[in-house]
Design a protein around this nucleic acid. Structure first.
Lengths: 349, 349
DNA sequence: TTGAAAGCGGTACCAC
DNA sequence: GTGGTACCGCTTTCAA
């Protein structure tokens, strides 16, 4: 645990002053420091394995090249953290590092976490959530450039830019895919009512029907929840003991877990997929959608893209020196992506 | 974006010197500063909403009360991050904060991430992995107290303490549970061969048979992989077209996803669970094991506990001022926990 | 009881 | 072309 070399150590070894070391190592040596000295300095730095102390730098420069990411529960929850992955990708490529803090959905911890991050001189803040949701923006976020990923300012006059998936289009395109396969009676197992994603996806579902001049049967839309057993129960309600002519020929699910439940129910009932019934997921959850039997056709959430886009926005704001606050555009929508696999097919007729 | 109040601001407002402010606010006012001044200082601090600058503190004290957590992929992967959650719990309760960096399984990034963390004066380091695995301990971790969670030093003479689940006992108790239900022909769908967890769980399986004087049929143990389709295929191999008398009456799976595949296969084959077949999972993956239909009996991985235990070790070492290196004990095992749900039952006979 | 001053590790300005 | 020095915000020692 021997202490790290400091600029002074390097200076001594090279027989110059600290200032010279600083200049040279920051690329402003030419025209200020003799070529000769430059060489010696670089060598000494090498030998001592010198790298500047980030803390001292932050104190001096009042900025740290660190971006704080606050997560509601993406670290701890069993959902993938690709938003964070994408955000980190672009941060690193632009010379920033990210540190994340997870509040485990305890919003009371938000302010404290932000305070901590701010105290450590983060240059910007990103709030990221597992599911699309309105956010009570915690105090403190307005003090540095900030951005919202997968959530949006619940305030009537939003102050922070947010990046979210285009759920309406996602819902529409998923439905269109099924309609193109000839399905007309398509049930929609939506998530729970309290999620803002549900109504948006339903809206897309309606749009798809409307643009094809097809009527929507309200009874086919049901709020089911988000889990496997919810999907199972929903499917049983739709299929069990119902004569084939009155069964929907396709079931759209608001996420892949629901779809797993539907497939399970179909298996119990002896229905083949997609022969007797098409099943469509949503999210493209890694290691669920792609490994199900049959593999799930699904609407992929562009998580990685959301993270990349949000971080790009944020860094642009930071490097322009202006806050994202009061920017002209407050919302970026990222399109979802249809992933064709094996659980959907032509309607049986 | 008005600048935060500094100790100097407080001093001015209270009409004292910066030193007095420091003394008082750190509880060493009595006997050094007049009661009167103390009151004024506290008041001024309050009014200015003063909190010390963490960066300056770190620079001055050479410690930050920050613990760096390096994750192979627990943030980004679709597995829950309860190890990190548990670690954070105890860190916060002891006045530390954690920041996590995820390398997305790119070990080439390990050293850089640790360097970054070290540069920011973290007081300690924790490396955490999604699955149990040997670790090439990245350089730099020996420079501050460090601990390994869910992974262990691959070095012949390990230098870092690690906290891992007791997989052998887990495998044994899972098997015993099935044996107690009267099962004798128990198939084991192990994970992939390259995971260190697989052989350990298999060892437990063998122990259970041995202690009950039951013979192990080698052909009943198969490395299948870790995903739903792997479980499906494995189950089909065991069950499809096999006369009841030759079918295993229970299938133990090395994780819950495999169990989902097995349940799916059973449903397709018209086998009822647990009536015709008992299925046992492993991990207790949240929102999979507990929401499956039927809900999965499983062996829960003590993730939260591992995190708590590892962080406790680490902070103890930090506060004792000694490195975990060269501690007497190098390994802590945390027991797994049997979770009884609906997918296992008496053998059909 | 108080305040002045040094120092943590850098950067940048300014004389020389 | 070079080195001295002030300053970022805080703690701690020491002299008054």
């Amino acid at each position: 645990m021997n202490r790290k070399a400091t600029a002074l150590d390097v200076a001594k070894r090279a027989g110059v002053s600290r200032s010279a070391v600083s200049l040279v190592l920051n690329g402003r040596g030419d025209g200020n420091v003799a070529k000769e000295s430059q060489e010696r300095i670089r060598l000494a730095a090498q030998e001592l394995n010198y790298s500047p102390n980030a803390i001292a730098l932050s104190l001096r420069n009042q900025r740290s090249r660190v971006i704080g990411i606050l997560s509601d529960e993406v670290v701890v929850s069993p959902f993938d953290g690709n938003i964070i992955g994408g955000a980190d990708d672009v941060a690193r490529s632009r010379g920033f590092v990210t540190v994340v803090m997870d509040t485990e959905r305890d919003t009371a911890r938000d302010a404290g976490a932000i305070e901590t991050l701010l105290d450590r001189q983060v240059d910007g803040l990103m709030y990221v959530t597992v599911g699309l949701k309105p956010l009570e923006v915690p105090p403190g976020m307005e003090r540095v450039p900030s951005v919202l990923a997968n959530c949006y300012d619940a305030h009537p006059r939003p102050r922070l830019h947010h990046v979210i998936p285009d759920e309406v289009t996602g819902g529409r395109e998923a439905t269109e895919h099924l309609i193109q396969f000839g399905h007309r009676d398509i049930a929609f197992l939506a998530g729970s009512e309290d999620s803002p994603a549900s109504p948006l996806r339903i809206e897309g579902y309606r749009e798809a029907f409307a643009s094809t001049q097809l009527p929507v049967t309200e009874a086919r839309i049901a709020h089911a929840g988000w889990d496997i057993d919810d999907g199972y129960k929903g499917a049983m309600r739709l299929l069990d003991g119902v004569v084939p002519a009155e069964r929907p020929t396709a079931i759209m699910c608001a996420n892949d877990r629901l779809a797993v439940g539907v497939v399970l129910a179909a298996a119990r009932l002896g229905l083949s997929i997609p022969g007797d019934l098409s099943v469509m997921g949503y999210d493209d959850e890694h290691r669920i959608a792609n490994t199900m039997v049959p593999a799930l056709t699904t609407m992929a959430l562009p998580l990685r893209e959301i993270g990349r886009e949000a971080m790009t926005r944020l860094l642009d704001a930071i490097e322009d020196g202006k806050t994202t606050t009061a920017e002209p555009t407050v919302e970026t929508m990222v399109p979802c992506r249809l992933v064709l696999r094996e659980s959907t097919g032509p309607e049986p007729r």
